[in-house]
Design a protein around this nucleic acid. Structure first.
Length: 462
RNA sequence: GGCGACGUGGCCGAGUGGCUAGGCAAGGGUCUGCAAAACCCUGGACCCGGGUUCGAUUCCCGGCGUCGCCUCCA
């Protein structure tokens, strides 16, 4: 498999150390407010990466952090007159629900910044001892000049970034580009004790410390949004490598931004579409498919049309799958699997792999229409759908819908969907189209769609 | 100003130096009591100008346009 490594600015072979679990660290959200559609994109992109590696039989240790202490959380808590824990817990809950609805696997480990203050303090102390950091009036800053490789990820040259109007000059810093790892306590803020007095951690240090704790000083993949490349990830590298003396992440992967009217969605400007709202309006799995249709590194433009389009595509996939029993005992079609993997091996070309999936669907439908066996295709379909995470809960649900009220209207007490279908089959045999169609309409009103086939009627939820 | 990405048919969106991407939408047909689903067929594409090449949408140079990062941000 090849992946695009941001450090190299090139697609390179992915050669993980398979003697231990493949460590993936994804920068999770700052839980300051509810998620927007862009957050979902990032989560889905790297969930598919993880699923694909797992599907190949690799052992993956997937860590996604939760930043639960940070300037904006503090500001919001103060505005509302509640503690930062309340703000963080509310937003955390919203993120969790949204990620779950989108069909993402739960991370192996989900560390919170506030649970790792000692690890951060320890790393900061080491950096001070080794001359990479210094204390200044209760703050501790990382000295970018002490780390020659600074800028390796973002390809920034220190002298280009220098001072100017864009970087606030702060006389507590030796160099304007030095960044805070520890911030001295301010009134009304949550604080922790440290060797430099009470205060709280800066943003970047948490990821360096938590990644090292759970994945070791050197691990396979570090991922996140492309907006984190500078300064966040650049700073993470500086801290971690200066402290541990080893290469931090070997591969850096970044997803492209989700745009709204041509501009990036962002919390800070309120230029966004909320994620939970979208998941109510559109089928969550269709939202996932909307993300998947565009390569993860490219910008993705939000539009209602695109979401509706994704719903229609998803319906095609589902209606294909409904032509088979829930469990399929067949070897997956080798040709389709090969085509699928070669797309995926090309830096997760999911859009290309979706093309393969739809080819598979057409071929499978054709075979079924011709009365031939298509189980090997269905089996491949299931594998691919698993990797994409497009298998919806609804699809795997086995119990029938509650149609007792409708059944009662047709004179059947405590009737099931099967009873109704039987009734309708009888009416159709008698060419009683009025009853047959009334029944179908009644079920349609309850979001249950009936389709007649040569082998009898099928139903599914709309 | 510095660093970087992108520009494909009505819409969305892969990919490739010469061989059908795919989805959605549109038109025509088959099947069906009707419907739905499905299958078949059709149209239409690679921002502009140079260059390399037998041949470029694909490589190189230039231009135009859009966007991201350089400040919190998935």
């Amino acid at each position: 498999m090849d992946v695009y490594n941001t450090v190299e600015r090139a697609t390179v072979p992915f050669e993980p150390d398979t003697s231990r679990p493949i460590g993936i660290y994804v920068c999770g959200p700052t839980v300051q407010s509810e998620p927007h559609l862009g957050h979902g994109r990032s989560a889905v992109a790297f969930d598919v990466l993880r699923r694909y590696l797992m599907w190949q039989g690799l052992d993956v240790l997937f860590v996604r952090n939760i930043t639960d202490i940070e300037d904006k959380i503090i500001a919001r808590a103060q505005e509302r007159g509640v503690s930062t824990d309340v703000v963080a817990a509310e937003a955390d809950e919203a993120f969790r629900r949204a990620y779950d609805l989108l069909g993402n696997l739960a991370p192996s480990i989900e560390p919170r910044a506030t649970d790792h203050i000692p690890e951060m303090i320890s790393m900061i102390s080491d950096l001070i001892d080794s001359g990479h950091a210094y204390e200044s009036s209760g703050d501790v800053y990382f000295s970018v000049r002490s780390f020659p490789a600074y800028g390796i990820l973002s390809r920034h040259d220190l002298d280009d970034l220098r001072s100017g109007e864009r970087v606030a000059v702060d006389d507590k810093k030796r160099d304007p580009l030095d960044f805070a790892m520890w911030k001295a306590a301010k009134p009304g803020e949550p604080t922790w004790d440290s060797p430099w007095g009470s205060g709280r951690p800066g943003w970047h240090i948490e990821c360096s410390a938590m990644a090292a704790k759970y994945l070791g000083p050197s691990f396979a993949i570090h991922a996140g949004g492309s907006d984190l490349i500078f300064p966040h990830h650049e700073n993470e590298i500086a801290q971690a490598e200066a402290a541990n003396g080893e290469q931090f992440a070997r591969y850096w992967m970044h997803n492209g931004m989700l745009n709204l009217s041509g501009e990036k969605m962002a919390k800070s400007t309120g230029h966004l579409v909320t994620l939970l709202g979208s998941l109510e309006r559109w089928d969550p799995i269709a939202v996932r498919l909307f993300y998947l249709r565009t390569h993860y590194r490219k910008p993705l433009e939000f539009s209602e049309e695109a979401l509706a389009d994704a719903e229609a595509s998803l319906a095609r996939l589902h209606s294909f799958r409904r032509r088979f029993p829930p469990t399929i005992d067949a070897t997956a079609d080798a040709n389709m699997i090969t085509r699928f993997s070669s797309s995926m091996d090309n830096d997760l070309d999911v859009a290309g792999a979706l093309g393969v999936l739809f080819d598979l669907v057409r071929e499978g439908n054709s075979r079924l229409d011709a009365g031939e066996d298509a189980n090997s295709l269905a089996s491949a379909f299931d594998e691919i759908m698993y990797v994409f995470g497009l298998t919806s809960a609804d699809e795997t649900r086995t119990e029938g819908p509650d149609v007792r009220e409708i059944a009662a209207q047709f004179g059947i007490e405590e009737g099931t969907i099967d009873d109704l279908l039987e009734l309708r089959e009888g009416a159709r045999r008698d060419k009683d189209w009025a009853t047959s169609d009334t029944l179908r309409d009644a079920l349609a009103d309850a979001s249950i769609v009936i389709e007649d086939t040569p082998d009898g009627a099928r139903w599914h939820r709309n």
